[in-house]
Design a protein around this nucleic acid. Structure first.
Lengths: 127, 127
DNA sequence: CCTTAACTCTCCAGTTGCGGGAAAGATTAG
DNA sequence: CTAATCTTTCCCGCAACTGGAGAGTTAAGG
């Protein structure tokens, strides 16, 4: 499988697939005689794993750890849970932050008339 | 006022104050004979305005626009409202995204035993 | 067999919004 | 007078890619 086939199978851009090997997140693929990267199903499965991990917002370093656990048949699920819980707390923190921003900004937007006059509670709030 | 006094008054790091002038977000401050930047209350007010705008998550370019409107006595509040509404929609989009991630990830975390055995619904989901 | 399109390679630069740190000059306190 | 504390400019680094240049490779069609 060449890189574009692997990228389609994994659901990742070609550039990203190369990038993940460059930073050592996945092992460097073997090469054809012309120097083309060749991928097998195992490599694609790892890429899919990373794509799904990234979709949860795990950092590359966290993906590295998760991928290690994925491949470790003697892993402790506690370690996986620890990493996931940490991410969950970050998500909850971000949610609180966004909720606060939303409350404030939506109030301002509602009270702004939005016409051709200069009076504006949004500007008043910011200034 | 030297830069550190202005930075304290504005609630922004010194580096950030310099950065905002470098990218032309605020006008370049006048200089003392030794080349030190000097700030007045007007300059500080603009920096505060930017800090508050940034706190809402407006990009630097949006801050540039908002600052222009702030200083434009003949502005239309409609323009301000348009920019703020756009940001509000982004916030809401992000909230939906985070809610979805939260639902999925919290479910996985709840169902993972988190012990010394390898079985793990989180890994199963990602793999 | 030849052309041409599509694919792949490496390398470098840019993105956003700053932060860190070096080296050099200015100012202030004691 | 000296030491500490500013301040300056400059350049690098972060996260996680993305875009593009320039060069080589391969597959399809005529």
């Amino acid at each position: 499988m060449n890189i574009s086939a692997a990228s389609k199978a994994a659901g990742l851009p070609v550039k990203t697939v190369r990038y993940y090997a460059n930073i050592g997140l996945v092992e460097a693929p073997s090469r054809s005689s012309a120097g083309y990267r060749t991928y097998d199903d195992t490599a694609v499965r790892k890429l899919v794993f990373i794509r799904r991990s990234r979709a949860f917002g795990f950092t590359i370093e966290e993906c590295r750890d998760l991928l290690g656990l994925y491949q470790d048949q003697s892993r402790n699920s506690a370690e996986v849970k620890r990493i996931a819980s940490k991410r969950l707390e970050e998500i909850e923190e971000k949610q609180r932050e966004l909720q606060s921003l939303h409350d404030d900004l939506s109030h301002l937007v509602r009270t702004c008339r939005g016409d051709d006059r200069p009076d504006c509670p949004i500007i008043d709030y910011l200034g």
